[in-house]
Write a protein that binds this DNA or RNA. Structure first.
Lengths: 337, 337
DNA sequence: AACGTTACTGGGAACGTTTCCAGCTCCTTT
DNA sequence: AAAGGAGCTGGAAACGTTCCCAGTAACGTT
C-alpha cells in the first residue's frame, strides 16, 4: 500500500497524490477530493521513513529528562506529550542518569533520530559554546538552570521560574512568621543545578534579614529521591541544633522530610514549619497540606512545546519565558509560637 | 556524511561498509577495522530513515499509557525506557485519555511509526478478535486486565499481578485483624478494568468470610486521580454508615483517602485501618506509612521489555507472566480494638 | 591442468516518498 | 492572431540505506 497504489486507484500521478497529501495549493478541487477518497478507501498511511529520508528530517521531537519518576517531571512530561501529539508530532522520551550530560545525550539522540527539536527537562546547564554547538537543532530548556551564564542565550529557548527569587520568597514567608532558625534541605548532586539556585535564594533571604547562615542547618543529600531526603532530614534532627522551620528545595523531598520530622517526634507546624517549591499533586494530600510555591507544570510543558514548534516551523525565533509561581498556603507553616 | 563517504575514505565499496556496520560475518578483519576507523574519524552516523525504509521496519517500540502522571505508571515507564534504550531501541511514549481505546491508539501509532513492538500499560482490555488483529505487531500488556477473556491469549504477552487474588489477600488482612465493616474505594471509569478486578477480589474476600456486601460502603469515583479519591472518601464519611477499615484499589488514591479520613476527624489506624495495592514510592512517606501490597514496578517494566524483545527478535513466542506482590506492613492497619 | 570451493568484495536495484522541471490547456493581453 | 501567463499535472531524479547477485582471488582436489 504505497502512494503509487493511491495514484493508480484515483487515476492521477504520484506527484499529484503527494501534493494532495501535503496540502499544496495548486491542485484542483476535483482531483483533490478524488484522491482523498482513494486514500480513505484504501486505508493508505504514508510511509514516514520514506518521507523522512527525502526531507532529511522527521516529525519527531525529543524529550530528555533526568529521572522520569520525579513527580514534578511527570506532570510536565504529560503536558509535553499532549501538546506534541496534538500538533501532529511524535515524542520520543529519553531518560538519563544523574551522571550523564543531558546536552550530549540530546545531541546524539537528535542525530540518530533526525529530531526536529528537543526539550531538555530539569537538568543543569553549564556548558561551553562548543558543546552547545553540537546540538544544532532548536531546543528549549524547561525548568533549567541557565543563570550561570556560560551559554549563549541566543542559541536556545527556555521556560522556567526564577528559581533563586522564588526560593527567597519562600524563605521570606518563614521569616515573616517570625522564624530565624531556618534549616534548608537541598540536593547536592550537581553544580549549577536548580537546587543550587534555590539554595542561593535561601542564603539571600537570610542575608537580607540579617540572619547569619548556619552551616549546621544546611542538609545536603547525595541524591534527588525521597529516600535521600528522608535521610538528610534525619541527620538534621540528629545533630541537635535547633531549628523552627525548614525550607526544602522540592515538594517531593519535602514530603519525605515531613515524614522524617514526624518520625523524629516533631509536630508540623507546631514544632517545625515547612515550606517548599514545586507544587506536585501529591503534596496536597500530606497531613498537613504542604505549603509550597506552585510551578504551573501543565502550562510550562505546553509553553515549552509552543516555543519549540515556533522555532521548528520558523514562525518565531528563540525566546526565554519566565513563569511565576502561586503560593499554596497549606497548613505546614505557622507563626513562631 | 553518508555511507558513501565512508566507503571512499576507507577505499572499499558501499556494500562492504554496510556489512561492517551490520556485523555481517564475511568481511575480512583488515577491512573491518579500516572501515571502523573511517567511521570514527568521519563521525559517521547511519541514517535511520534510509535504513528503516529499506528494511521497512524501525528500531522503535511504543509505549501506550493512560495517564503519564499516575505515579505507579511513572515507575514502570522509567524501567521500560531504561530497558528499551539499553537494548538499542528507541521508545516513543503515547498518552491516551480515559475515553480512548488503547488498542486502536496503539495500532495507529504502530502503523504510522512502523513500530517493532508495543507495550500497553495499564488499560482495560476487552476487545473483539478483529480489533486485536488490527494490531499486527508483537505487543505485551503490562498491568492489564486480561481476565475477562474475549481475547485470544496466543496473540499477545502480558505481565501483571493477579489483581483479583491480590485484592482478596489485602482485604483478608483486614478481616484477620477483626474488621467486618470494610469499605472499598474504587474507580469506576472503565468496565473490565483493573479496578473492577480488584473490586471483585474485595467481594470475594467478604463472601468467603461470610460478611455481607454493603452497597453503602462501596465508594466509586468517576476518575482515577487523587482529587476524585478524596471526594469519594468524603462521600463515604458523610453518609454516616460506620466502617472500621477501608480497602483502596490503588496507592495513589489511598494517599488522598488518608487525607480525607484525617480531615474527617478519623485517626489512622485507630479509628480506621486502610490498605491498598501498588506500592508507589510516595506512600512510604505518608503518616502513618501506608500498608500495601507492592507490585514490583521496576521488574515488571523490565520483564515487559524482555518479553517484547524476545518476540520482536523471534527468540521466543508470546508468554504470560504473573508476578506476585510483597506486603509492606506500614502503620495504617491495626486490629479492631 | 582443470575444476570446485571458500572467502571476500563490488555493482546496482529497490524501498516510498518529495520536489524540480517540463509540458499542457485555457485564458488574458497586446 | 500571436504571445504570454496562470493553473494544473506528470515524469523522473534523488534521498541513504540494504541485500541479492555476480565476480575475483586464492587454494585445495582430482
Amino acid at each position: 500500500m504505497t502512494i503509487r497504489d493511491v495514484a493508480e486507484h484515483s487515476g492521477v500521478s504520484v506527484s499529484t497524490v503527494s501534493r494532495v497529501l501535503n496540502n499544496h495549493p495548486d491542485v484542483s478541487e476535483a482531483v483533490r477530493s478524488r484522491v482523498l477518497a482513494s486514500v480513505q478507501e484504501l486505508h493508505y498511511v504514508p510511509n514516514n521513513s520514506a518521507r523522512d529520508l527525502v526531507r532529511s528530517q522527521s516529525d519527531t521531537i525529543g524529550l530528555v529528562v533526568r529521572g522520569v519518576g520525579n513527580p514534578f517531571f511527570s506532570a510536565v512530561i504529560r503536558a509535553v506529550e499532549q501538546s506534541v501529539s496534538q500538533a501532529g508530532y511524535t515524542m520520543v522520551l529519553h531518560q538519563i542518569n544523574t551522571e550523564d550530560n543531558e546536552l550530549l545525550a540530546g545531541a546524539s539522540l537528535a542525530r540518530s533520530k533526525k529530531l526536529r527539536g528537543l526539550i531538555l527537562l530539569g537538568g543543569c546547564f553549564d556548558y561551553t559554546p562548543e558543546q552547545t554547538a553540537a546540538l544544532d537543532i532548536p531546543f528549549v530548556c524547561c525548568s533549567f538552570t541557565n543563570s550561570f551564564g556560560s551559554l549563549n542565550k541566543d542559541a536556545y529557548s527556555s521556560v522556567s521560574i526564577d528559581d533563586q527569587a522564588e526560593a527567597r520568597r519562600a524563605v521570606e514567608i518563614l521569616v515573616r512568621q517570625g522564624h530565624q532558625k531556618i534549616a534548608v534541605l537541598l540536593d547536592s548532586t550537581h553544580d549549577h543545578s536548580v537546587s543550587e539556585l534555590r539554595y542561593h535564594g535561601y542564603c539571600q533571604a537570610l542575608a537580607e534579614h540579617g540572619i547569619p547562615l548556619d552551616p549546621d542547618l544546611v542538609a545536603e543529600t547525595g541524591d534527588f529521591d525521597m529516600a535521600a531526603a528522608y535521610e538528610g532530614t534525619c541527620r538534621l534532627l540528629e545533630q541537635k541544633k535547633e531549628f523552627t522551620a525548614l525550607f526544602v528545595i522540592a515538594d517531593s523531598m519535602a514530603v519525605a522530610a515531613m515524614k522524617a520530622l514526624h518520625d523524629g517526634g516533631r509536630r508540623i507546624p507546631e514544632d517545625c514549619s515547612i515550606i517548599a517549591i514545586d507544587g506536585i499533586d501529591m503534596s496536597t494530600y500530606t497531613v498537613p497540606t504542604l505549603t509550597t510555591l506552585i510551578q504551573p507544570q501543565e502550562s510550562m510543558g505546553e509553553e515549552a512545546v509552543r516555543i519549540l514548534l515556533d522555532m521548528v516551523e520558523e514562525r518565531a525565533g528563540n525566546r526565554h519565558v519566565r513563569v511565576s509561581t502561586a503560593l499554596r498556603a497549606g497548613g505546614s507553616v505557622a507563626p513562631l509560637n
